[in-house]
């Protein structure tokens, strides 16, 4: 241990503590700032556009001469791409997690898990490049009438991006299931598959669900992949082969232009942002609640 200098005057310690508290309060300030910035502009937006038109309108053409502000096409685009991403990430992520947790030898798991997590660390703009110039051309060979910009390609790539989130967190949850449950199952003559699917997965269910909800929230907020590869045409459709636009891609589209502050167009991105924030916030809350419950069961 190092020798200590003489204790300083008595005022010094409380001062430091207050300074550190101020640092911690920056995080509260961030949340307050997000809500305040979004709320101020959204309220100004809703003063000019009735909330019923915003939430239930089926046309989104804020940049046209006769603007319409129905957000449903953007919401539909977001849900469509996220659903495709989940359709890829859920089965693949869960099977990977089951393999890593129940079948893989310890050494293999220690190598594969970090490699899989690299997928989550790749910048999203790189995934956008991959979706536009690799996956979509590949899909065009399989499905000739798919457009150059579409929901399917970015959806699949987004699924690959959130896969490690599903697999890593699900595997953690499965590892937390007590050994005794597995041993009991084996003692009754069950195979490893039966044990995995009927004992371990149900026991880890709340933890796995929490992982999946978090992945869905990540998909909804993901921006660059869809901004690059999904097109910029808000349309109310479930067809994954045509160009669409998501909420996040719309914010990017407007940000790239030089939109003067205070215009209705400028405020649309905050109104859309507010919707995005509320949606992901509810999902994150649900995920945190489930994780807490899982921890209480086995903690």
């Amino acid at each position: 241990m190092r020798r200590l200098p003489r204790a300083r005057s008595r005022g010094f310690e409380p001062l430091i503590e207050r300074l550190l508290l101020a640092c911690a309060l920056v995080s509260i300030g961030t949340t307050a700032g997000i809500i305040l910035v979004l709320a101020v502009e959204t309220v100004a937006f809703l003063r000019e556009v009735p909330i019923t038109e915003f939430l239930f309108g089926t046309e989104w053409t804020p940049l046209f001469a006769t603007p319409r502000f129905g957000v449903l096409p953007l919401v539909a685009g977001t849900v469509l791409v996220s659903a495709i991403a989940m359709a890829v990430a859920l089965p693949m992520g869960l099977l990977s997690a089951i393999y890593l947790s129940e079948y893989a030898p310890h050494g293999l798991r220690r190598i594969v898990k970090p490699v899989l997590e690299i997928l989550a660390g790749v910048p999203t703009v790189v995934y956008g490049y991959f979706a536009l110039l690799f996956v979509t051309p590949l899909l065009q060979r399989l499905i000739p009438d798919i457009a150059g910009f579409n929901a399917l390609g970015p959806g699949i790539v987004m699924g690959i991006m959130i896969l490690p989130l599903v697999s890593s967190l699900s595997e953690d949850a499965m590892q937390a299931v007590p050994r005794g449950l597995r041993e009991g199952s084996y003692a009754l003559g069950a195979t490893r598959m039966q044990t995995s699917l009927r004992v371990v997965v149900p026991a880890a269910f709340s933890g796995i669900t929490a992982a999946c909800i978090l992945a869905a929230s990540r998909a909804i907020g993901e921006t660059m992949i869809v901004a690059i590869a999904a097109g910029q045409q808000p349309r109310l459709t479930w067809n994954p082969l045509v160009p669409i636009e998501t909420m996040t891609a719309y914010i990017v589209q407007v940000s790239l232009g030089d939109t003067p502050q205070g215009t209705l167009e400028y405020r649309t991105i905050f109104a859309v942002g507010m919707l995005l924030f509320l949606g992901t916030f509810l999902l994150n809350l649900a995920s945190a609640w489930l994780r807490e419950r899982f921890r209480e069961e086995y903690g």
């Binding site: 961030t30 949340t31 929230s217 907020g221 993901e222 921006t223 991105i269 992901t280 916030f281 994150n284």
Partner: peptide, 12 residues
């Protein structure tokens, strides 16, 4: 909660 907020919201 902040750790899970989409990055584009920080942009706004």
């Amino acid at each position: 909660n902040l750790a899970a907020v989409p990055s584009i919201i920080y942009g706004l």
